[in-house]
């Protein structure tokens, strides 16, 4: 029983990463219609950025938590303006190809500099011990990741449900042309929304640095599962991607306890079942006909 609870907790922690990544992916897909394959690479850059800040400049984790997402936001702005923007009129497939290409370039640039071995990073000293959760002790840093991720997701959710920014982004996401006809310059919102999604991936990368192996391929390993998460939650659904993120994390962790050989496959089985039952995903909207 304690084992199971502990696994559920592990699942929530990996779910934290899935949720943050899926959230950014969902926001970008909803607004731009771009399946951002480079999302995993941005996550990887976030982790490497955290490592480099400490290694080269001696800037600690807490500073990285602020600086790295901001830097990735700027990178997102630049990439959207220079590359993604040009594909706006084209089929979604081109966006996929572009971001896939970006992934390869970013991965190889990092690999050239740092090789394939993982880089060391310690959790900040304030979070180095463990916390007594009653039934078991749990690493303090992991608890922090879970809390921080939930708070971030709730914050983003409030931003999208309670503010004018949220109303505009939801409207533009659902029906871009109509929203333009109502007086909103949708094009102006696209760039910051893309950058925001990229920054969220960077944030997940910072959180990953002290507890995951920092390698050029760390994002590539994760992104496939995150795609499944987004599909399960419902493409473009912000709420759905977060719920599905934690759900998939827990499913994997619990499966690890009982049927470890199937824990990776189960995610995709879940995806297939959800698609059969609800083709638009758990919280997705059916596409309108015409």
């Amino acid at each position: 029983m304690v084992d199971l609870l502990q696994q559920v907790f592990n699942g929530l922690v990996s779910g934290s990463f899935y949720a943050l990544l899926a959230l950014g992916l969902a926001v970008i897909f909803g607004m731009l219609g771009v399946v951002n394959f480079a999302h995993g690479a941005f996550y990887m850059l976030g982790a490497f950025g955290t490592y480099v800040l400490l290694d080269s400049w001696g800037l600690n984790f807490w500073l990285a938590l602020a600086v790295v997402p901001a830097a990735l936001f700027v990178l997102g702005l630049v990439l959207e303006r220079t590359l993604v923007h040009r594909l706006r009129e084209l089929d979604a497939l081109y966006g996929f190809l572009l971001t896939f290409g970006l992934t390869l370039i970013l991965q190889d640039l990092v690999r050239r500099e740092y090789g394939v071995q993982s880089q060391p990073y310690q959790p900040p000293s304030q979070l180095s011990g463990s916390v007594d959760l009653g039934l078991f002790d749990y690493p303090a840093y992991q608890v922090f990741v879970l809390v921080f991720s939930v708070v971030t997701c709730v914050g983003v959710w409030l931003l999208f449900t309670r503010t004018r920014v949220g109303v505009v982004v939801r409207a533009a996401t659902e029906r871009a042309e109509l929203t333009r006809a109502l007086g909103i310059d949708v094009g102006r919102w696209v760039t910051p929304v893309f950058a925001f999604g990229v920054a969220l991936a960077g944030l997940a990368g910072v959180l990953a640095a002290p507890m995951r192996a920092i390698t050029p391929l760390m994002g590539a390993d994760l992104i496939i599962v995150v795609f499944a998460v987004v599909v399960i939650g419902g493409l473009g659904s912000i709420f759905g991607s977060v719920v599905a993120g934690f759900l998939v994390g827990m499913l994997q962790a619990v499966a690890n306890l009982y049927i470890p050989s199937l824990s990776q496959v189960l995610v995709f089985v879940l995806m297939a079942v959800v698609l059969l039952w609800r083709p638009a995903g758990l919280f997705g909207r059916e596409e309108r006909v015409a």
Partner: peptide, 27 residues
């Protein structure tokens, strides 16, 4: 572009009524 025409005072009431499923009436 459309958004500038709207800002100049054109009000769009499209044939499908232009309703959003993700927005409340007040929104």
């Amino acid at each position: 572009p459309a958004h500038k025409r709207a800002r100049l005072g054109m009000g769009w009431v499209p044939d499908d009524r232009g309703t959003y499923s993700s927005l409340s009436v007040a929104e």
